[in-house]
Design a protein around this nucleic acid. Structure first.
Lengths: 218, 218
DNA sequence: AGGCAATGTTAATGCTATTTACTTAACAAA
DNA sequence: TTTGTTAAGTAAATAGCATTAACATTGCCT
């Protein structure tokens, strides 16, 4: 039964519901979303989704997974596209720019990914996906550190690379948030998110010195 | 009629509802909040709130205002507490640390402040309050630039200060988000938000050079 | 063919937002 | 003091939602 246009049984309702939810969320945001709408769009009754998802949150979790996978895919593409110049500031910056672009293109997804739904169960935090995204950035940083001879070699989990990757992720995320809240051009009408990110990344990376050296402070 | 324990008329239902909403949100998050609950807690019927607020969102907007004012107050206190060492890296860092602490203490408020409710009307974006918070940070940065002689004098809106303030706000916000999502100790179990912020701030500020000089790149 | 499990359905229940039509009380003017 | 007016309550109704329970259909395995 591969024909999904049948009568009683849908064929692949689970995926259809996830897709419908994704569409609805992109159209009207996650707060407006209702499970009834998703069922309607998938052409089934309002109770059918409960055969595939524990509750509304469970369905949203699956869309969140989708969103994280989408971001991950883009980051991978960016990494591969910059394979030639791997280890340069430009390669690192490109990851951040991709992050910003994703937030712009998939605004509702981006909001969903980082939505605070209070005390969530650990298994509902999408931690694996978040970790995967971080991994990509981390590798880019580690490559950078080695290429620029700031770090002699990379062991599996380099503390320094982790710290820098964290900082870069934080700043990309922060800029995305400020941009979505129209706070970037609050004072400087010409401020652009991309430009701010480039400057920040350069600022953070340029402050780095080879291991063992004393940092340049004031 | 200052006695609010009267029968029919409440006396100050508007404020009571905002307060009740704030409490409920801090207890269970903003998604779980219902206007009915707030009315119950304030001891009035479920329709009474509509005499004071257009709809649910309007009520939430007022709590958002409250949240922004709370953050603003803390930032002011931090600025004043560090008045003696104004213009130092420590003074700037302290603002960021206050931001992080607020996100921890008032997690639900923090989430509410940055909640993405899709395409909101401009008047519902709480822009004035966001701007005020930015102002405080901006002043701290401008003082820093002058004190450290990186900038000779501050004109009203210094483009450079604005850029740096934006970067610092972004990174503080990003770190707060990562912390709330338990992503800081994903790889480095010992990573602490405060420490990451201190390092980031130092990293960004230490890269600065007096105006006119060429930045230290690779 | 028969039976079972998966996956639908309809019909509740109980919650919610919001509106409408009424009610009460405070206040100001006559 | 009486009398309107108005702000600020109430109850009742509508409509939508999440979720569950009881029932129906179908595909698959034996």
């Amino acid at each position: 039964m591969t024909d999904s246009s049948r009568c009683y049984h849908h064929g692949n309702l689970r995926d259809a519901l996830i897709l419908a939810t994704a569409e609805l969320i992109e159209e009207s945001g996650s707060t407006a979303f209702s499970i009834t709408d998703a069922a309607r769009r998938a052409g089934v009754s309002n109770a059918a989704p409960y055969r595939h998802f524990r509750d509304k949150e469970d369905l949203l979790d699956n869309v969140r997974d989708l969103a994280f996978m989408g971001l991950h895919e883009r980051l991978e593409k960016t990494r591969d596209a910059n394979g030639a110049q791997a280890g340069t500031v430009a390669a690192v910056t490109a990851m951040g720019l991709t992050y910003l672009q994703y937030a712009r293109d998939k605004r509702a997804f981006f909001a969903l990914m980082w939505e605070d739904r209070g005390q969530m169960q650990p298994e509902r935090q999408n931690l694996p996906h978040k970790r995967e995204g971080f991994d990509l950035l981390l590798t880019a940083i580690e490559t950078y550190l080695v290429q620029t001879e700031i770090q002699s070699e990379l062991s599996g989990l380099n503390p320094r690379a982790i710290r820098i990757a964290t900082q870069l992720w934080a700043i990309a995320h922060g800029i995305a948030t400020l941009e979505q809240n129209q706070l970037l051009d609050l004072f400087d009408k010409t401020a652009q998110a991309d430009q701010v990110l480039v400057e920040s990344t350069e600022g953070l990376l340029s402050g780095l010195v080879p291991e063992g050296s004393a940092p340049a402070g004031h």
